[in-house]
Write a protein that binds this DNA or RNA. Structure first.
Lengths: 256, 256
DNA sequence: AAGCTTAATTTGTCAGACAAGATGCTAAAT
DNA sequence: ATTTAGCATCTTGTCTGACAAATTAAGCTT
């Protein structure tokens, strides 16, 4: 039995304006969302699609790449491209600047989340998660002793706590925003490393959070986290201007 | 004068696992987000990038295609690819289910954000923003008296508070997650409308938040918001199962 | 100096090829 | 007969080279 090709027609003739690959992506997207192919079903090969639309494989690949980025399809080498079975939604927002005001704006959002994450972690963490949090804290010290900044380890420490909260939304949002704090954390850590008292203070604050989580004391964990983040913001504001500029300059190929 | 390429190193040698184009996209993305190239600046040609990474132009194109789709760069034929003037980053996550557990997971994240937003709004709201918050509260009552559910007005009320916090990240994240709460809020509001005492309770809670924000009392605003959200969760949990199902069925094209 | 023409660049598209996995069939082994 | 090993085939990923289309810059004319 012959079945009329659902996506019919050469595409080159009508619309010449927009990008070719975009048109194809749009049509494929519509076809998928209209249920043309079921979830998890394999869609035609790139060659077949190219022939159907009368375009080259390159364009098909670009179009499918868009759909893949949009979370509508997944591709497996050697196997094919499939309609995603777990559709995703995306939050798009402007890339924050890296000046002090913008960083503090991000910190304002991060603080209540980290505090709540610590609170939840205290009452929900599994033994293995507690172990991972403790390891992350040790990793920070080791990185510092090795002469590194310890930024990655610092972020990993906070991520371990977020994971222990057993709520994927916290890790998602915090991961998302922490990407913009690399530089800011580097500044505070560099600043802290210049004063022995600051360094001890940070270690003590981390320790307090971990102790509260280990004890399962949700309120204490929340308070310890709140204290830590408030102090971190203070330490960031107190960082000398020239230090901010200097750390910024350390980034590979920053100024010209 | 020779300048060491900021993004150095052949990429093919170390990691063979993940997709090549994905690695390149990641490295370019990091470079952009770390300010490697300024906003609106042109990045190297595809050929140059290919040479720098030791890969073919196809892979560079795929990588740039990803960044373009992610809103980080824009490409102009004949001219080049540029860092987007208003670069955006996207947080992608799985579409939450609408069952009770998933809704409560979202609420867990929303609560600390709404509380902090109320706290900030109390100390930062402009007179016009206070007016808008009050109007939003009135709109809820009017919608209810008109026989509507008031879900939209309820969300608008919370959004007005978030806006008064003067931090775009709060509105962005809350807007994002509130999309998934339409149904849940409808359930609670429907449930509340069935009992006069619940209804009065909700109005009183809203009033307490607004009063604290109007008075500029940050702590009182935070506490009032926390109380409201805790009670809302309780009211959601107490909603009869059949009510949840009934409201769900009202959604356009819900069941098959 | 201003405007037009032309050449050089750069992305978009095409075409063909091979590499890297994945799938399914066939034949051998138990 | 069932399982296993090998093998042919298919599909996506990457490479290479080429041309088309659009932009940019230089040069030339006036």
């Amino acid at each position: 039995m012959y079945k009329e090709p659902p996506l019919s027609g050469d595409i080159s003739s009508p619309s010449r304006g927009p990008q070719l690959s975009e048109q194809v992506a749009t049509r494929l997207s519509e076809a998928i969302q209209s249920g043309e192919w079921a979830r998890g079903e394999r869609l035609p090969t790139e060659a077949a699609l190219g022939q159907r639309f009368g375009i080259s494989r390159s364009v098909v690949r670009e179009a499918i790449s868009m759909l893949r980025n949009a979370g509508l399809v997944t591709s497996r080498r050697g196997s094919g491209s499939f309609v995603a079975d777990a559709p995703t939604v995306s939050l798009r927002l402007a890339l924050p600047d890296s000046d002090l005001a913008s960083v503090i704006e991000v910190l304002e959002l991060r603080r209540p989340l980290e505090v709540e994450a610590a609170r939840l972690a205290a009452s929900r963490r599994t033994p293995s998660q507690l172990r991972r949090i403790r390891n992350a804290m040790v990793d920070i010290d080791e990185a510092v002793e090795a002469g590194l900044s310890g930024v990655e380890q610092d972020l990993a420490f906070h991520r371990a706590i977020a994971e222990a909260a057993h709520n994927a939304h916290f890790t998602a949002v915090l991961d998302f925003y922490n990407r913009f704090l690399h530089h800011a954390i580097q500044v505070t850590r560099t600043n802290e490393s210049l004063r022995e008292t600051f360094m001890q203070q940070v270690v003590a604050e981390h320790q307090a959070i971990v102790d509260a989580i280990a004890a399962g004391d949700a309120e204490a964990a929340a308070q310890a986290a709140a204290r830590h983040l408030e102090h971190a913001e203070v330490r960031l504001r107190q960082a000398p201007e020239d230090l901010i500029a200097r750390v910024q300059a350390q980034r590979p190929g920053a100024p010209e």
